[in-house]
Amino acid sequence: MQIHPTAIVEKGAELAAGVSVGPYSVIGPKVRVGEGTIIHSHVVIQGSTELGRNNQVFPFAMLGGPPQHLAYKGEDTRLVIGDNNLIREHATMNIGTVHGGGVTRIGSNGLYMIESHVGHDCIVGDHVVMTKQATLGGHCLIGDYVIVGGLAAIHQFCRVGRYAFVGGLAAVVKDVIPYGSVWGNHAHLEGLNLVGLKRRGFDRETINTLRAAYRLLFADEGTFQERLDDTAETFGDSPEVMEILEFIRADASRPLCLPEREV
């Protein structure tokens, strides 16, 4: 363990073997840091915050701050961060609220670029990339391998499915299907995240199946419910297509990002 003489590690904090704390960083009394994690200079980690193994936290990041919510009254809620994340300069991640389950949870192997923000009670998956100044409002559910472009903002309670891509400057106020790609203010569905699927090793047959299912699901003919049923019947053997349909059906009260219709 390496703790710089100017760092403040308050009594009660638990730091595992191999943890490094840089100059002028402040670690609160309820913080737990896993083995091999590197905390660079001028980092503040407070509240009931747990970091897993081999994370790197860069200068001026603020982890475990109180939720930006008027109903918060100082309750002992938590922030839980997985392993192998890069949390860059000025990134912020807040603890949860008692109204939202009490925990903000970050997965593993993510990249959280400069000034990105994860709000209270968010659940963020593994291998997520949040680009410069990307923002999650409270209670967002972000699937594995999602990329959120620079300056994009995702509204509270929104769901973004696995492998989806949110373009830079997008204002996302509706749910984004798995494998989808959304752009604009307000964001609309532009198609599938084909670049991301190819980079992640999805084969040509799977991608072609997804494209065919997308065309059927978002066609002009029939009602959306009819198209859901038709897509399930036609592509029921595809786990990727069924993941999209299950995502949509999981919360019928949530609005969905849809393609723009030509006038």
Rank of each mutant, 00 (worst) to 15 (best):
A7Y: 07
I8R: 06
E10R: 12
E10H: 12
K11C: 00
A13Q: 03
A13S: 03
A17W: 00
A17Y: 00
G18R: 08
S20G: 00
G22A: 01
Y24F: 14
S25F: 02
K30H: 14
V33H: 04
G34F: 07
G34W: 05
G34L: 05
E35G: 02
G36N: 05
I38K: 09
S41L: 03
V44E: 11
I45W: 05
Q46G: 01
Q56K: 12
A61P: 04
L63I: 03
H69M: 11
Y72D: 14
D76S: 08
D76V: 01
I81Q: 06
L86P: 00
H90N: 10
M93P: 00
T97Q: 05
G101R: 06
R105T: 12
S108A: 14
N109A: 10
N109H: 15
L111F: 15
E115F: 15
S116M: 13
S116C: 15
G119W: 13
H120S: 11
D121T: 09
T131K: 02
L136K: 11
G138L: 12
H139A: 14
I142M: 07
G143T: 11
V148Y: 07
G149S: 06
L151E: 08
A153G: 15
F157K: 10
V166L: 09
A170T: 07
V172L: 14
V172T: 13
D175L: 06
V176T: 06
P178M: 08
Y179C: 10
S181Y: 13
A187Q: 02
A187N: 01
H188D: 02
L189R: 03
E190R: 07
R200Y: 10
G201F: 10
F202N: 03
E205P: 00
T206I: 09
L210H: 08
L210P: 05
R211W: 03
E221G: 03
E221T: 09
E226V: 00
R227V: 00
D229K: 12
D230F: 00
E233V: 01
G236Q: 03
G236D: 02
D237V: 00
P239M: 08
E240D: 12
L245I: 11
D251H: 13
S253F: 09
L256A: 08
L258S: 14
E260T: 13
E262C: 01
V263Y: 12
